[in-house]
């Protein structure tokens, strides 16, 4: 873990942090200690990249920090609020409101248009009326450069466009934290660059915290902070060279 990445940020202003996280996977003889006391704080307006070899625990850390998985030990705090002891439903509500996920594969629902896909998290939150949700979804799609394809069925979009819809969807409820698991891993170079640029711009403009797991060294180098991970531990943290 690096203290440099969070220097000067008070605990209440840390959108997401974890400390001494342990996670085991598997049963009996095949039980593996995938996270061995990981601590990390995300800064608002910063892109944090986690790099490391396959199987080192990058995605496991992302899922635990995204409240999709429960750690076997350690603490997680979302905007200063500890999430231990929350029920599954309460955790789901926090996730819906405060965290946006982007995966390697877009995972859009083919039964819905691009706009409807973006509206799905908003429907769960239930704060906006249908018209407001439609307007916000259209605005988010406009922001990712798909303003003219809001009514298009998601399966009739290209791979890059689908991933941009997924980014718009992750921003649906205006979360403070974005978690991206190899968001460019399934895209060609041009689309990779575009998607990464889009994410970093959003983070900077809207003061969100982005934690991304990547194997792409160019993407990692362009992040604000690069966390190196090995055998379930964060072994180092250094500043990147953002454009």
């Amino acid at each position: 873990m690096s203290m440099d990445a969070t220097a000067g940020v008070s605990a209440a202003n840390v959108p997401l942090q974890c400390s001494d996280i342990h996670r085991y996977l598997g049963e009996a003889e095949s039980r593996v200690h995938v996270l061995r006391g990981v601590s990390l704080q995300l800064q608002p307006g910063c892109v944090h990249a986690i790099v490391g070899p396959s199987g080192c625990g990058k995605s496991s850390l992302l899922y635990v920090m995204g409240l999709l998985d429960r750690p076997d030990g350690g603490r997680i705090a979302l905007s200063g609020e500890a999430v231990e002891g929350l029920t599954d439903d309460q955790v789901s509500c926090r996730r819906n409101e405060h965290i946006g996920f982007v995966f390697q594969f877009h995972f859009l629902m083919h039964e819905f248009t691009a706009q409807e896909n973006v509206m799905i998290p908003m429907r769960r939150l239930g704060r906006l009326g249908v018209r407001e949700m439609q307007e916000r979804a259209a605005m988010l799609l406009e922001m990712v450069g798909l303003g003219d394809k809001t009514r298009r069925n998601s399966q009739h979009l290209s791979g890059g466009e689908q991933q941009r819809v997924a980014i718009a969807r992750s921003l649906a409820n205006d979360p403070q934290v974005l978690l991206a698991d190899e968001p460019t891993g399934n895209l060609d170079t041009a689309n990779s660059e575009r998607v990464f640029q889009l994410l970093t711009n959003l983070v900077r403009q809207q003061r969100k915290a982005l934690l991304l797991v990547t194997h792409n060294l160019l993407v990692a180098e362009a992040s604000d902070w690069i966390h190196e991970m090995r055998d379930g531990l964060l072994t180092g943290c250094r500043a990147g060279r953002p454009h």
């Binding site: 995204g66 999709l68 599954d88 439903d89 789901s92 509500c93 926090r94 996730r95 819906n96 409101e97 965290i99 996920f101 995966f103 995972f107 629902m109 799905i120 998290p121 769960r124 939150l125 969807r169 649906a172 409820n173």
Partner: peptide, 9 residues
């Protein structure tokens, strides 16, 4: 994905 978006069980 629905669960990741905050949909409950």
């Amino acid at each position: 994905v629905l669960r990741s978006m905050g949909y409950r069980r």
